[in-house]
C-alpha cells in the first residue's frame, strides 16, 4: 500500500538550531548525540537567536559548524575564561562551552575551576571520553588505571601518571555552582536522562541561577580499539565504576 506522507505525523526531526553540515566524528562516537541534545535544548528553550557557543580544540573543534547560532573558537583549555568574558560583556546572551577532558580537566584546570568558583552564569558541557581523540589517542587526565593509550602503551601506571581525575567532584566542593551532574549515553534511558540534565543546565542560565556543569561520559571507539557496541558496554560496565553517574550538586 502506498504511504500517504501528508497524513503522517512527524515525531522526530533534526533540531532547527542544527545546521545541515555533516559531522566529522567517527562512527559510534557520542559527540554527535551530545550535539543533537544541545541543539534540541536550544530549540525547546527558544534561545537560538541569543546563544553563543564556544568551540574548543580537539575532535569538537568544528562545533561552530554544527549550530545555527553565533560561535567563538578558542584556545585549548580557555573556554570557561572566554565564556566568562562573553557573558560579562553581554549578560543577555546564553553562553555555553563544549569541552573535552583534556581541555576542561588538564590544560584548562585553572580556567575551569575558577569560572565555577566565581559562579559564572554559564553552561559547561564537559565531554569525558578518557582519551585525547584528535591527536591520536594519548592519555587524558581521566584515562582509567591500566588503560592503554599511545602515551601509556603499557597502561596508565598510577605510580608515574596518577589516577583518573574526578573533576566534577572537585567542582562540587565549591560553594558557587548551582548544578553539577554526570551523565552517560550508553542506552536510551541514559540519553533521556542526559537530555533532561542538559536542558536543566541551560534553563538555570536562562533563569539567571548561575554556573551549571554537565559531565557526559562519552565513547571513543576508534582510539579505544572497540566496536561502538563494545564501547557502550565499556562505559556502562567499567567507566561508570570510576565515574559514577548522578547529580553532585543541585541548588537549582
Amino acid at each position: 500500500m502506498p504511504v500517504d506522507v501528508a497524513r503522517m505525523t512527524k515525531v522526530f526531526e533534526r533540531p532547527k538550531s542544527l545546521t545541515e553540515a555533516r559531522y566529522t566524528y567517527c562512527p559510534g562516537c557520542h559527540h554527535g548525540v551530545i550535539t543533537r541534545i544541545i541543539g534540541q535544548t536550544i530549540d525547546e528553550l527558544g534561545i537560538a537567536e541569543r546563544t553563543v557557543g564556544i568551540a574548543p580544540v580537539g575532535c569538537s573543534v568544528f562545533a561552530y559548524l554544527w549550530y545555527r547560532c553565533d560561535a567563538v573558537q578558542v584556545a585549548h583549555g580557555r573556554a570557561s575564561a572566554v565564556a566568562t568574558g562573553i557573558k560579562r560583556a553581554r549578560p543577555d546572551l546564553v553562553v555555553f562551552s563544549y569541552q573535552g577532558d583534556g581541555d576542561f580537566a588538564s590544560i584548562g584546570t585553572a580556567e575551569s575551576l575558577h569560572a565555577a568558583n566565581r559562579g559564572e552564569n554559564i553552561t559547561v558541557i564537559f565531554v569525558n571520553n578518557q582519551i585525547y581523540g584528535m591527536t591520536g589517542g594519548e592519555m587524558a587526565p581521566t584515562t582509567l588505571v591500566h588503560q592503554k593509550t599511545t602515551t601509556t602503551p603499557d597502561g596508565r601506571d598510577p605510580a608515574t601518571c596518577g589516577y583518573p581525575i574526578r573533576f566534577s567532584e572537585i567542582i562540587a566542593t565549591l560553594d558557587a555552582p548551582v548544578y553539577v551532574t554526570r551523565q552517560a549515553l550508553y542506552d536510551t534511558r541514559r540519553i533521556q536522562d542526559c537530555t533532561k540534565a542538559v536542558k536543566k543546565a541551560f534553563q538555570n542560565q536562562v533563569d539567571g541561577k548561575g554556573y551549571s556543569l554537565v559531565e557526559i561520559l562519552s565513547t571513543c571507539p576508534t582510539n579505544w580499539r572497540m566496536s561502538p557496541t563494545q564501547a557502550n558496554e565499556h562505559v556502562a560496565n567499567v567507566v561508570t565504576q570510576v565515574f559514577p553517574l548522578g547529580d553532585l550538586v543541585d541548588r537549582g
Binding site: V72, A81, T84, R90, H114
Partner: peptide
C-alpha cells in the same frame, strides 16, 4: 562595567578574547 581579578594572566587575556568577541571595548 566589568572588573575581574582573573586567576592568571592566561585567563585574563582569554576573558579579553571573550569580551572582544561579544563586541565591547576591553
Amino acid at each position: 562595567r566589568t572588573f575581574i581579578q582573573a586567576e592568571s594572566e592566561v585567563a585574563a587575556i582569554s576573558m579579553v578574547y571573550g569580551a572582544a568577541s561579544a563586541g565591547v571595548r576591553t
